[in-house]
């Protein structure tokens, strides 16, 4: 029954790529508008120091957003990223304290994160559970593991060698390494997602899993590896956090998953799978970060922050729903 309506609308329909770039342009406009308004409201906003602080604040989370966006595109979701970030940090920290050199310890931390992803991927693809429940369980289990490893107390890592701490605290030509790493990760995966054949399969699987199977794509393999990728990037973020803070707290990263998912969704990733861009998700992250920074500079109580972020998410999803309803 919709065929006729669709045929009728075809002439004026905006296409896929345009819709995505429209969303990104819209986000840029909103972010710029906020920045301009804030530069009048607060003299401290438009300073390199503040920008650096904002970039730093979302750079490490931004690495996790990259993995989450790809997972959302394949039709999955990962609630465990906050716990995995923390576990990677705690495991690396504990291994360092046990005498391992920090680089090897970090690699093991990232490897363990990948294994957690593989375990979730197993439950999703072989057992047949959905991502939501699987990662909800993983979130709780891995958080428990953090507490077990640390016996509940933060690990003090001030003995980390300066060369390692530099990852989180140093800079190159006044640009922090953290930001450089973030930019490199984003650039690589944004490029791969647009151009690489392997990542095209992520879109097919998320858009219509059955049709993908009927095109000879092994959708379970795709879902498995994307789940592993998301956890691995969370593990990478955990190690960088460790270098930045010089400590590993077993409660770190609680609630982080919500911020990450919100950023990806504001940036255009659909919870139904099949759509999303990394650039958009990073813009979503940037918007949330600018808003947080503005609230602080305007001296608005931190208690308001979560409420306002939640409202932004709701607005973004509503706009998306409206655009989608018009589409079909």
């Amino acid at each position: 029954m919709h065929a006729e309506i669709k045929a009728a609308g075809a002439v004026r329909r905006i296409n896929f790529a345009q819709l995505a770039s429209m969303r990104e342009a819209g986000l840029i406009v909103i972010i710029l508008a906020l920045c301009i308004a804030m530069s009048f409201a607060s003299p401290h906003f438009l300073t390199w120091g503040n920008f650096r602080a904002m970039l730093m604040s979302f750079s490490i989370e931004g690495i996790v957003v990259v993995g989450m966006t790809i997972l959302l595109i394949v039709g999955g979701i990962d609630l465990s990223v906050g716990s995995v970030v923390c576990f990677s940090m705690v495991v690396s920290g504990a291994l360092f304290l046990a005498g391992l050199d920090p680089w090897t310890a970090s690699l093991i931390g990232i490897g363990v994160s990948a294994l957690i992803g593989a375990a979730m991927g197993f439950f999703v693809t072989v057992i047949g559970l959905n991502h939501f429940i699987t990662s909800l369980a993983a979130m709780v289990i891995v958080r428990g593991m953090c507490l077990v490893v640390t016996k509940g107390t933060p690990l003090s890592l001030f003995t980390l060698p300066p060369a390692f701490k530099a990852i989180g605290q140093g800079s190159f030509n006044n640009i922090p390494y953290v930001i450089l790493i973030f930019v490199v990760v984003v650039a690589i995966f944004d490029f791969l997602l647009r151009r690489a054949t392997a990542f095209r399969k992520v879109f097919y699987t998320g858009s219509n899993e059955k049709a993908a199977q009927f095109s000879g794509i092994r959708t379970n393999q795709v879902k498995f590896w994307v789940t592993v990728l998301c956890s691995t990037l969370a593990g990478l973020a955990g190690v960088i956090y460790m270098a930045r803070f010089g400590a590993a707290t077993p409660t770190f990263g609680a609630g982080m998953e919500l911020n990450i998912i919100a950023a990806a969704v504001i940036g255009g990733a659909s919870l139904n799978g099949g759509s999303g861009t990394i650039f958009g998700a990073i813009l979503g992250m940037a918007l949330l970060s600018v808003v947080t920074s503005s609230l602080i500079l305007l001296d608005i109580s931190v208690y308001w922050q979560d409420m306002i972020k939640g409202c932004i998410l709701l607005a973004a999803v509503s706009i998306d729903h409206f655009l989608h309803r018009k589409k079909s």
Binding site: R200, Y204, N208, Q213, F214
Partner: peptide, 18 residues
């Protein structure tokens, strides 16, 4: 249900098989 990817572009639909 399993023939086409409705929200993907025509070109991507055609190339999916190989």
């Amino acid at each position: 249900g399993s023939g086409v990817f409705l929200d993907l572009p025509i070109a991507a639909n055609i190339s999916a098989l190989d």
